[in-house]
């Protein structure tokens, strides 16, 4: 499993990647809050923020294609919700709400997209930890991040085995059942793995507290 299949551009070396992580986190938060608090009537402010984010993305080396693909998946959802307000008012009123939601939502989405594609998860976790995330939560999150790849590899192996055994796609219902059984088996194996990992941790002196060298 390639390490960066989730956030493909987070391990670059541009100026955006080298900025302090806490600064980036706070900057993006500020952009989102600004986008929410500035009234829609001052839309040039939103435009300037969007232009700045676009610039930051191109500096960070995030391809336009990636941005467009992500927007392609993001926009229909928020569009559906935005359209629903005028739709429930007979398409006569409520267009301002729809436009506001669309504008703010897209802007905030671009901000977070920039953040996660310039900051690897482990560094983001350290930044959040310094901003007050409890240590146990940070420990569980890093454990989970580590095992996402393991569980996903296991899932791929099980899928491959299933493909090797079953020749054709059967019905709609059978596909659901077979997929859910896959998850069920994966669940059993993961819980067994968690027991084994826990045993190994205890054997090495784990007492419920994670100690780091920071």
């Amino acid at each position: 499993m390639p390490r960066d299949f989730l956030d493909p551009f987070s391990r670059g070396s541009t100026i955006c990647h080298r900025l302090p992580d806490r600064l980036k986190l706070i900057m993006v938060l500020a952009v989102i809050v600004a986008a929410m608090l500035v009234p829609a009537a001052y839309w040039p402010v939103h435009g300037c923020l969007a232009a700045a984010l676009f610039l930051a993305m191109s500096i960070a080396g995030i391809p336009l294609r990636y941005l467009l693909v992500r927007l392609l998946f993001f926009l229909p959802m928020i569009l559906g919700l935005a359209i629903a307000v005028p739709a429930s008012n007979g398409f006569a009123r409520g267009w301002d709400v729809a436009l506001t939601v669309l504008m703010r939502g897209t802007l905030s989405f671009m901000g977070v997209l920039w953040l996660v594609n310039t900051t690897p998860f482990d560094r983001l976790l350290v930044a959040m930890r310094r901003l007050g995330l409890p240590q146990t939560l940070a420990a569980i999150l890093s454990f989970m991040y580590r095992y996402i790849f393991v569980v996903f590899d296991e899932l791929q192996r099980m899928r491959e085995a299933r493909r090797a055994r079953s020749f054709t796609r059967r019905g709609f219902f059978a596909a659901w059942q077979s997929n859910a059984q896959l998850i069920g088996m994966l669940l059993i194996r993961s819980m067994d793995r968690a027991e084994r990992v826990h045993g190994a941790m205890c054997a090495r002196g784990f007492d419920g507290e994670i100690r780091t060298l920071e």
Partner: peptide, 14 residues
């Protein structure tokens, strides 16, 4: 107490 981190972390990954 000691199982929280591996169990919840693994379940999250699952």
């Amino acid at each position: 107490s000691t199982k929280t981190i591996p169990l919840t972390g693994m379940m999250g990954a699952l």
